[in-house]
Amino acid sequence: MTAIGWGLLLGLMLGTASAEVVVVVSSENPVQSLSHAELADIYLGRMHNFPNGESVVPVDQRENSPTHHEFYSRYLGRTPALIKAHWSKLIFSGRGRPPRTVTDDKAVAEFVAGNHHAIGYLTPELVDKRLRVVPIE
């Protein structure tokens, strides 16, 4: 079993989440906080703007990553399979396309830092001064 596998198993045994995940925007983005519902609407393709009216570009992580799993289960209460089913409905009815996916936490940090319309999620260790954590209320 790989180190990640043991880590996940340990996490499950202790009943704790495998990874901490925070939601971030560019430090130039005026958005201070979002509700759970707003975050869900943005990540499920129902909303294309921040509450202040500025357009929003969500960025996603790979489906098989622990960060992806943690983000969707913690903030949206949905498993990766449910998210996949949700996007299948929209893709195959021609109604929408999922957020772009980047490779890892580091790529999320770079993408969000470089685009003040972007929103992403990553491990808190990678939050630097170009990014701001958005509390989800």
Binding site: H48, N49, S55, K84, A85, H86, S88, K89, F92, S93, G94, R95
Partner: peptide, 27 residues
């Protein structure tokens, strides 16, 4: 982003699941 028009052959949406009724994975 919230107003779109389509022309051509497209999905019929009379019922709640009509738009993806053939996509077994989505139901």
């Amino acid at each position: 982003p919230d107003l779109s028009v389509r022309v051509g052959r497209m999905v019929q949406s009379s019922l709640m699941v009509s738009e993806y009724r053939k996509v077994g994975y989505a139901t």
